[in-house]
Design a protein around this nucleic acid. Structure first.
Lengths: 334, 334
DNA sequence: CTGAAAGCGCTTACAG
DNA sequence: CTGAAAGCGCTTACAG
């Protein structure tokens, strides 16, 4: 089944390829009515559809962008991708999705391959490594937007949650309910991953703001695997925390596994707030008080900024960090 | 910043474009050691990376496949996509993700655009419409694999859960626990969407197998919005069901919203099993008994089958329906 | 062992 | 108002 090409259409309509191409690109300026009709008919009869790859070769655009997430299984990433895809669909663009698994080697490989595929731009949740790679991209003015994470020394447009504010909202809510012994649970803080790091900062500032003394025993940070033991240890302190802020959905699951096992009552024995409005928040027993991220808006913004860069050939007037407001959703766990 | 092309490399290395191309494609058969080295050096110095679009134009491959899901926000779809992407990554392929939202018009648009982009194959969760479109594709031997849904009259390789078995497992578990009044909750059964339809069939067969009389009052099907009222009605029957099979995760959420609101105790007042091992199954109170789908295996299989088709130019010897076994995970709700 | 030439399917000045 | 020609960046017989 040989594909029909523009040449076939031209022959069938008795015009030149150029004229067909003009027609396809809506340059009807000087085109005769009859020519137009003949071409239209030929296209319909041959069921012709142009090869976008060939067009892209000439026009230097693949009408495709790449999105590199850590892992598409994370709900936040999924929502961001959905928003980006909706935006792209309106512009007749497609999106290639890549999972870097927080692995800088995979990240670099994907970026190189996407660029080899002439992708018009990339939205990435950067691993934080590959600084040289991104520096090079910056210098070339290749369109890139960062999502969720900042890389020190790299000035690239970035979409972020107001992470400090997120922690602030949680601590405020706890204080309002009378808590003073407020703990926080986070994945490892060794790497300066933006969301974790900033949320911790916000937590500390909020305590200070409320005149609560900072207690290092109430900060739990570690790999998911060791979280259970660490949690047990923290809750068995002579004076344990009465409220806990879970820094993301993964840590929330660990905490709930623990409270279920140990039959800890929420919020009586332990109040709980987490960042990310998980799917089961309102049906859980008790319903979970959460801090929601506007994931769809953030994804949409990332797409908008990227398309502006693409239009302006990467020469954005000013590189910005866009901060989005988190929202406290009070339910029963706080 | 003009991109460096194969011509630049050729000039720099003092050879012809052909030779550079041979080098790039590892056809070293007769290539002189020095030539090789000179090219290698030139590539490194110019930081050359080939334009895959141009290569694709000649080779008639975009090393890209399309995946059309109903909605990437569904966990099952996400897992399937992740498995497909991992598979593609090993083959140096990329995947374009599209959300058809169960809208046949969007579905058709995506398929047309993906094909115009010379995508090498498509994995789709078909809406069930666009029968003519798929018939045409079939006749052209264009590589397509269906996921999750069958379309009557279209013989295309399809990956499915053994849906009857899924319902069977649930009913068996209920019967084992002494239940005889077993209900089922499903989205609308009007359209013959494969999973719903087959799971209902399995439910009926299972009842028959256990000698339980089929009671139409225990079958609830409807839009998500009206489910709550219908649920209330069913539970207020003179003789209400004592166990419910939720046909997917969306209906599960509705049921749990209801039971939470009405303080129905699970499993004492109502036993519950749902298809899809949701993320909160083990931390819910009570932990949920579920039927898990092997989503990753299913996604991987879809990719394997598609790549076989691509290799064989769509001329697969035999079109098959691949059935995957569901797994009963007994927790506390049954 | 390597190069000149044609071609993949388009677009785009330019000429007439 | 329309066509011939060159070119986008590759690959691939074929010749030598």
């Amino acid at each position: 089944m040989k594909k029909t090409t523009i040449a076939d259409v031209a022959k069938h309509a008795n015009v030149s390829k150029s004229t067909v191409s003009q027609y396809l690109n809506q340059r009807y300026d000087y085109m005769g009515e009859q020519t137009k009709e003949r071409i239209e008919k030929a296209i319909a009869e041959l069921k012709y559809s142009p090869n976008i790859l060939a067009r892209g070769l000439k026009q230097k655009s693949s009408t495709t962008i790449g999105v590199i997430v850590a892992n598409i299984l994370h709900v936040f990433s999924t929502q961001v991708i959905r928003a980006i895809e909706d935006f792209c669909n309106e512009k007749d663009f497609h999106v290639i999705v890549c999972n870097a698994d927080d692995d800088p080697v995979k990240e670099k490989r994907y970026i190189d391959m996407l660029r080899a595929k002439q992708v018009d731009g990339i939205i990435a949740f950067p691993t934080g490594e590959n600084v040289e790679l991104y520096k090079g991209i910056m210098e070339e003015n290749y369109p890139v937007v960062f999502m969720d994470r900042l890389i020190p020394g790299i000035t690239i447009n970035t979409i972020l949650l107001d992470n400090e504010q997120a922690a602030f909202l949680a601590v405020n809510e706890f204080v309002k309910k009378g808590h003073e012994r407020i703990g926080v649970v986070s994945p490892p803080l060794t790497q300066k991953v933006t969301p974790r790091f900033e949320r911790m900062e916000g937590y500390k500032k909020a305590l200070e703001h409320h005149g609560i003394e900072f207690n290092p025993d109430y900060i739990l940070s570690g790999e998911i695997e060791e979280m259970h033991t660490k949690l047990k240890k923290m809750m068995r302190l002579p004076v344990p925390p009465t409220a806990i802020l879970a820094i993301n959905d993964r840590t929330l699951i660990e905490i709930l596994t623990y409270t279920k096992e140990e039959q800890v009552r929420i919020p009586e024995d332990l109040a709980l707030i987490n960042v990310d409005d998980v799917s089961f928040a309102s049906i859980y027993n008790p319903a979970l008080t959460t801090i929601a991220q506007p994931a769809f808006e953030m994804g949409k913004k990332a797409a908008e900024v990227l398309f502006d860069l693409i239009r302006d050939k990467g020469l954005s007037a000013d590189v910005k960090v866009y901060r989005f407001k988190p929202e406290l959703i009070v339910r029963e766990s706080s």
